[in-house]
Each structure stands twice: as C-alpha cells, then as structure tokens.
Amino acid sequence: MSAAAFKATLSQFKITLLTALVLCFFNAGSILGDGQARWFQALNALMEYDRALILKGEIWRLFTGHLVHWSAEHFYLDALVFVAQGIVFEPKIGRAYAQVLGIAGGAIGLALLLLQSDLAAYRGISGLINTQLVLGTGLFVFDPNLKRSIKGFYMAVLSVHMFKIAYETVFKVPFFVTDALGDMGLFTPLAHLGGVMVGLYYLLGSIRTEAKARPRIEMPKCGFTPPGPSRD
C-alpha cells in the first residue's frame, strides 16, 4: 500500500484514532498504576462526572466524564470496543461522527443528572459506544446498496444489542458482563440507554433526510422491477 493510500485509509478513522489517543492520555493514571500517576488521578478527578460539582457549575464534567475510567481494566475494555466499532462505523457515519459523539456525551451526562439523582460519580465511554453502535448498525441496515444477507447481519447485531440494553434497563444488572470488569462501581444502565436514544435520534433523522433526497420511482403496474442501484 502506498503512503498516500495508507494516509487515505487512516483518514477514514481519524476521529476514532484521535479519540483513542485522547483516551490513552487521560487514562494514563490507570495504565501506569496508582503510585506513579498522581497527577493523572488528580486530572481524572477534575474530569469525572460528579453530580454535586456539576450542580455547582462545573458543567464540563457532563462531557469529560466519558473520557476517564475507574481502572485499567475498565479503560482497556472500553477503549478496545470503542476503537473496533469506530473503525467500522466512522466511515459510515461520515462527517457527522464527531458531532454525534459530542452531542451524545452531553445528552448522556444530562440524563444522568436529571434522572439518576443517587449517582454521585460516573466514568466511562460506554454510553458513546452505544450511540455509535446503534447509529452505525442502523445506517447499514437501511443502506439500500447492501446485500440482504449483510443487512441481516447488522440487523442481528442491532437486535442483540437492543435486547441487551432492554435487559439491563429492566433488571438493572449487566447482561453477560465479563469478570474482568472488577471493582468499578455502580453499573449504570441509564448511560447506555441514553447513548442508544441519541443513536436512534440520529438514525431517524438520517433516514428521513435520505427519504426526502431520494428520487421517487414510479412503480409500473405490470410488475416490472426497475433496475436498482449497484450492489455492494
């Protein structure tokens, strides 16, 4: 692969990669270990979602809380999933990707603030992961250029994920969680649900826009099927 091609490939995931670098920096405290990362821990404490301090005006915490994590395991798992999904979905979501993440961050923080008053503190990017998964898979599902089998796959992924979110929201326990998560505090289904809602909001908006933009094709009465767009 030429340098230009490599650069072009990387540019498709630039927000994902940039976010990954930012995550690595802010979670250096967890990566380096407790004893060597006091400065990072102090920084994390300034960034985490802290209900009391947000109410006192530190509203940046609504956004920055997603970028810090409770432990190395928590960070590794979240970052792995975020990057993997970002690579798949960022090219699909396109230019709106950064905006979607930003809006989702604020919306999730706000939802926690308004709807979960017993939550004192929160850290983790999983809410945003939910947004990108729902929006990304949804866009694939509604992509008219995709084969039905591939669409079926994305539909299956979306269904499994929605079931997971519903299960967690109803029963308030993690669904099929890995034991590596360890001691990271309260499981917060509302953050996941908030992420899903933002993803769905963007998805519906996208479908509506696309429907308006798409030229209407009159269906002939004789059952003739017009030639469709080229298959993926």
Partner: peptide, 8 residues
C-alpha cells in the same frame, strides 16, 4: 457512589 459506564 460511582457509576461505571462499561462495556460487557
């Protein structure tokens, strides 16, 4: 106390 926004 602390919410963990974490994947499973």
């Amino acid at each position: 106390l602390g919410g963990g926004g974490s994947v499973g």
